[in-house]
Amino acid sequence: MTTIAPRATTAAVPAGRRRRNLDQWAAWGFLLPVTVYLAVFYAYPLFRNIDLSLRNYTVRSFVQGDAPFTGLANYGTVLGDPTFLPALVHTAVFTGASIAFQYTVGLALAVFFRQRFRLSATLRAMFLVPWLLPLIVSASTWSWMLNSDSGIVNTALGLVGLGPVNWLTSPQWSLVSVLIANIWIGIPFNLVILYSGLQTIPDSLYEAAALDGASAWQRFWRITFPLLRPVSAITLLLGLIYTLKVFDVIWIMTRGGPTDSSTTFATWSYRLGFGTLLPSFGPAAAVGNLLVVTALVFGLVYIRFQRKLEAS
């Protein structure tokens, strides 16, 4: 092989690099539609949200468009507000408990439905019905069921000898009530994705393990759970993001009350911006951005986790 003079600038590009460049172009070709889509449709609203949080908006200046730039003043107002700490705690509890229960129940149901029996496909589809209902309907139904005086839940409690609980009207129980409703609404999401993920695990693995004498629990813990890790990770992350944004259910059931006992960042943001007769858009956007930042932090954690999975 002749050596090529190092000074030669017209040296041929090594074949490997050319191949990789073509690969890159091809990959971005597949990604182009989504990238354009993201740029056009998400950039403007996100920019508007940041802009709203950096200015001092009154109703008048929102309409006329002449709000003064005030830097991080809105964030200061939000952090100093007495509602901030309760909202933070409630958001953490609401989100943590929601995804814990939704994931566990969804996984249990997915594993259960993986077995073949009569009606399994139909019943699995029926589990999605909660998702079909408009939120005003499901949240209202739960409100009616949990009504202190005429709700079926308190009637049932009475039949078993327990006293009535003020589910929606007492500060102690309001968060639990919206939590129950939210878990109910979120189980189908987890069920569908985890079930889909379970389908990618070949039956042959289970057969081999059964032949080796593994019990059902061992099969789950040694085969199902580890192989389900990438799908579980994305399910938990998406569950987290969507639960952080939940406000319809809480708003319709308790409006974040009484006395902020079921207020999360999402409901607080909505209340500041759209839930009063006198909107304060700046603080509302500031709370919304705090939510986005929280979610982004978990997003970074997820990407780290994904990298580790790929490396192994």
Binding site: S143, N147, S148, S150, N166, L168, T169, T254
Partner: peptide, 8 residues
């Protein structure tokens, strides 16, 4: 005299 549900 008034039911608890008045709060909601």
């Amino acid at each position: 005299y008034a039911p608890n549900s008045v709060i909601n």
